[in-house]
Write a protein that binds this DNA or RNA. Structure first.
Lengths: 351, 351
DNA sequence: TGGGAGCGTGCAGCGCTTGCACACGTTCTC
DNA sequence: GAGAACGTGTGCAAGCGCTGCACGCTCCCA
């Protein structure tokens, strides 16, 4: 029977994967016959097919992915580049991507940019050299700040499909999946106004995230459309990662605030904590609404009302857009899918 | 100059990646000359090399990963299979893997088993067909329950390296990275005893996780070695995912408990919440220690004392073991690296 | 006896590497 | 000054595993 090549220095016997060539040799037919037989081709007689198929099954033949990729110029892999993996929102989006891609027979390669422009570029170049059929990504903080998208455009020029989600840019022509950030921020603020709040603060990130920008816009519009005065002093920008609570403490001590919209979950939790230590009651004295319906919101004290971003749906949508584009020739016609966020009412807002 | 093939139905001009063949044709040399020149081979004259290198640079030549993989029988990819991605611990481990792998020039393909045996098997088979050089995985709940590891052993027999972390099994002979679960549970319980606690409960998972088992062992040993009576009634097994709080509520109502060790963060948070709603004070009436130093622990009320599992270090260690095995012929000699957990004291325990 | 079926083979090629052969020019030797 | 010996630079071909086209062969029937 089959002769496996056993490296002399191997302790136990390796059952290396069997190739078409080996099957062909063993069964004394040609490689193409084996290939066709395994594909149940009409060109091969029933007898031969059965013999080959039985043999292949016995030896657990599986076609080599790499060889297929080279031949077909399709890898059935998609590349995902996200700024951070230890982050509830990205993680749920990723789950959506992984699920959907799996269903359509795609595998996922993932790279983390760590919010760094350089790593984003590097990772893209690495994957663009044939490893994947398309990209799904969310821009790193640095990239948005530099406003430099040449690496994305180069990839697109090479004909590699790209879908951007959440952190996107108008300067890149491709499919996109975004949240209706401005609208939902508007809705959140208006909700607080309707429950009697008048001095509404916004806690946002430093830097140039399109999402923070949109949320701020929604915040401002809601204030103004509801006949309140927009007061820039009630907008606090916090560094993305910092353990220093003093700016928060000062902010709430020096301003009359009875409601807060935070552009993420952690800011909201931190602020709620500070405010409660300052002796204020949530939500009676001060209401809170955050973004991201993560684990923190569900278990904080009090439970945080928040904007659910439906990350999994975003991920699925992005994967669908990408795979559709990979498999069909869509000739431009880039779509931007908007996911509708939902406001979840819990204990940090007045009912 | 170079003639790119432009599909007739393409709207804008695609700058498809350039291949050795195209460079060769353009410069009227052979493919092998180009290949050697780009590798700075001594066989090629300085003039020719310079000409070819300049041209390649101009056209941004990058070798095709797939072709290289086929040739070298090395993909420079590693496959990671984890039970869940929206989970702080796995996510930190993954980050460690990704960082370390990246440094050594490896990319990461990731599959999520969703705690399902079937998906785990499927994903493994998919990746084992040439897509990756080795696996890093943590067993799914179902796999541990079924106690069926044939898919792992098959992969090993094929000579594909495998590293197991956290959720491991003695029935698989391979490199492993684990936490000193029993010891740290022992330490945690002993700490609570030293702070005067006597009726210490354990909240653990249903099912057959090796980690829960080890933690329970540490718990029991600590109780007994410190001259207390082990009382089975003080051990509560909870389903992995469930919103029903009544078992927790009843458990704390029907038992005299003054300290609790929980095998994960969420259980701890949920229990603390229930207990506080029952009017008890944490940590005066009842202390809590959880596992996983996640975001919840840091922001809960009160802050949760917990066992830091050092996920990133686990990930890095696993990746190092794997890549070392991929790149060197280690001939068995499987190692089990033990990561030392650390107890983090916060507000849910008495100082 | 020409031409389908019916079955099967061979070759080329996907993009890249690499050992070896070969062509050519220079230098050495008698 | 002719042939051997050598060195330099380049190309050929095989091969990684697989597919698909273009054929070839053998029957058999009209």
């Amino acid at each position: 029977m089959l002769l496996f090549v056993i490296p002399p220095n191997t302790i136990f016997q390796l059952k290396k994967r069997v190739t078409l060539k080996q099957i062909a040799k063993e069964l004394e037919v040609s490689v193409s016959t084996v290939s066709k037989a395994l594909k149940n081709s009409e060109e091969i007689s029933k007898d031969t097919k059965e013999k080959i198929q039985a043999f292949a099954k016995l030896y657990n033949y599986r076609p080599n992915n790499i060889a297929l990729s080279l031949k077909n110029k399709k890898t059935k892999n998609i590349g995902v580049i996200i700024p951070d993996i230890v982050h509830h929102f990205f993680t749920t989006v990723f789950r959506g991507i992984e699920h959907y891609a799996g269903e359509r027979g795609y595998n996922v390669m993932i790279c983390v940019s760590d919010e760094s422009f350089e790593k984003e570029v590097l990772n893209m170049e690495l994957l663009a050299n044939g490893s994947i059929d398309g990209f799904i990504m969310s821009l790193s903080a640095e990239t948005q700040e530099k406003n430099d998208y040449t690496h994305l455009n180069e990839v697109l020029e090479q004909g590699i499909p790209l879908v951007l989600f959440d952190r996107v840019s108008d300067e890149v022509l491709c499919d996109k999946v975004i949240l209706n950030d401005a609208e939902i921020a508007y809705e959140a603020v208006e909700y607080m106004i309707q429950t009697g709040k008048r001095n509404i603060a916004l806690i946002t990130t430093e830097g140039y995230f399109n999402v923070s920008f949109d949320r701020a816009k929604g915040y401002q519009t809601a204030i103004q459309k509801n006949g309140l005065d927009y007061n820039g002093a009630l907008v606090l920008s916090l560094p993305y990662k910092s353990e220093d609570e003093s700016p928060i403490w000062n902010f709430f001590e020096n301003n009359e605030i009875d409601a807060v919209l935070c552009v993420n979950e952690i800011f909201a939790i931190k602020c709620m904590d500070v405010v409660q230590r300052q002796g204020k009651k949530v939500p009676e004295d001060i209401s809170f609404i955050g973004f991201t319906n993560g684990i923190l919101s569900r278990y904080s004290t009090p439970r945080l009302s928040t904007v659910a971003q439906h990350g999994e749906l975003m991920g699925e949508t992005a994967a669908k857009l990408l795979i559709d584009r990979i498999e069909n020739d869509l000739e431009g016609n880039y779509k931007t899918e908007v996911i509708s966020a939902t406001l979840i009412h819990r204990e940090s807002t007045i009912n």
